[in-house]
Structures are given as structure tokens and as C-alpha cells.
Computed example of a mutant assay.
Amino acid sequence: MLPWIEIDRAQIPGGGGELRLKQRGQEFSIMLGANELMNSRLSGSEEALATLTHEKISERKKPKILIGGLGMGFTLRSALSVFPEDAHIIVAELVPQVVEWARGPMAEIFKGCLDDPRVEIKIGDVAAVIAATNAGLDAILLDVDNGPDGLTRASNERLYDHAGLTATLKALRPGGVVAVWSSGPDGAFTRRLTQSGFEAQALNVRASTKRSGARHVIWIARKRS
């Protein structure tokens, strides 16, 4: 078996630790310490984040979507495949090197999707983008951590507490949707979504596109009109 080769490292702003990009043949992995945050072989649940969101707002004209976290681009590519040509998709990525990796060593995975005219890349904290938006988004897709527990940065938890969900609610248009990716279930988060003014459901989805193996959780929560 081919050995893993470390390609690059990147510091997470705010003292969140160090990301490591690794490659083995055609396979890529992004690590934080001993934790694998993402792997190029496992894209099913990240793709579902976009497709499940689209199902909820498919009737909207010129939808404006915010994706929190670029990662390996699976959610973005899936969004580009289902949303119309007049969509505006903003991707907020905290770590600038992740965007560099997308245009460099992982360019084959991204397949030029960053150059799609519908895409706008913002380097910075997605929480700040949300806070600066007032009822201007049709959907917010969050894949910035391992879920509501804030593995990579403790400050990520502010996205998922009552104050963060209130800001998300304010950023969405009536009937807009927030979708949240997680490596596992969290009943307390489901309750916070409901208490914050959303109609929420937690869905189990496969990590792999082969419909086998581990399951992840996606919350789909609609803003009550």
C-alpha cells in the first residue's frame, strides 16, 4: 500500500490548531491532530447537505446560499449541480490555505468549481458573514466542524448556541433553511433549533456515496414564516 505523504500544513486562526493536508496516490485527507476531518473517498453526506437543502427551496428564483466551510468542495460541487444558473453561492472559509489547496494539489477534485460565475469566496469566519446579513439568504449550509460540539475551534460552538441560531434565523428570508452537518447525533441541538424558531429534523445519511459504511447526521431546519 502506498504511504501517506504530508503535502502542507495550515494554522487555524484563533488558536484552533494546525491542519495537515496528506496524500496517498489519488486520495487526500485533511487532519487535525489524530482526527481526520475529511477524506476525498467519503463525500456522500457532504453532497447530501446541498441536495437536501435544494429540495426545500427548489421553487425559489435567484436563490442566495451561504456555505460555511470549503473543505474538499463536495458540498459546493453538489450545490452547483442542483441550484439554477441564477443562483449566488457564497463560500466562507476561515483558513486561506484551504482555498490554495483547492486550486493547487486538490485541483483535480475541485474540477474548476471555484471559477463558476455563481461562486463567491469569502475568507473569514462564517459567523461574521451571518451576523452581517439581515434576511438576505435563502439557505445557510454549515460544515465548519465535526458538528455542534466545536472540535476544531471552541468558538465554533457559538454558531450552534441560542445566540448563534438567533443570528442565523435573522439572516434567513422567511421560509429559508439552515442545514448543519455533524459526525453524530445531538438531541440537545435539535431542541435548540426548535426553541430558536425553526422547524427542524435530523436525518441520518451515509458518509460514502456507495450507501454503506458509517452514517453522519444532517439537520434540515426551516425558518418559520
Rank of each mutant, 00 (worst) to 15 (best):
W181E: 02
S29E: 12
L114K: 08
P96K: 03
R222K: 15
H88A: 14
A188P: 03
E108G: 10
S40V: 00
A135L: 00
L172A: 00
G147W: 12
E108Y: 11
M106A: 09
F189P: 01
A200Q: 12
G73T: 00
M106V: 12
T209K: 15
A131W: 04
E36T: 13
A34E: 15
H54L: 12
E27V: 15
G69C: 03
L37I: 14
L32V: 03
G16N: 01
R191D: 11
E27K: 15
E199N: 14
I220K: 02
I130D: 07
S29Q: 12
R211C: 08
C113N: 10
I140G: 00
P174G: 02
S208C: 01
Q23I: 05
P63G: 10
F74M: 04
R224L: 13
G68Q: 06
V205H: 02
K170H: 14
A171E: 06
A131T: 07
A188N: 13
S58T: 09
L49S: 06
A10V: 01
F74Q: 12
S155N: 01
P96E: 00
E18N: 01
L42Y: 15
T168D: 04
L37M: 13
P185K: 05
E59I: 00
K223T: 09
I220V: 15
R118S: 06
N39F: 04
R222I: 05
Q26Y: 11
G104L: 13
H54G: 08
G176S: 00
S183F: 11
A132C: 09
D149C: 07
A127P: 07
S225L: 15
S78Q: 07
W4K: 01
A171K: 03
K22R: 13
T190G: 11
L32K: 06
I5N: 14
N35Y: 10
E59F: 11
V91Q: 01
E46V: 00
Q195S: 13
R222F: 06
V217D: 10
K111W: 10
I89F: 03
R192G: 08
R77I: 09
A179S: 11
Q201S: 10
G25H: 03
I140H: 00
E55G: 11
T194D: 11
P185C: 09
W219D: 05
D161C: 06
D125I: 12
A127S: 14
G14Y: 08
E120R: 13
E120Y: 02
G69L: 05
F198A: 03
L94V: 05
K111S: 14
T194N: 02
D115C: 07
P3L: 11
L76T: 06
L169R: 14
P174D: 08
L2C: 04
L21Q: 09
Q23S: 09
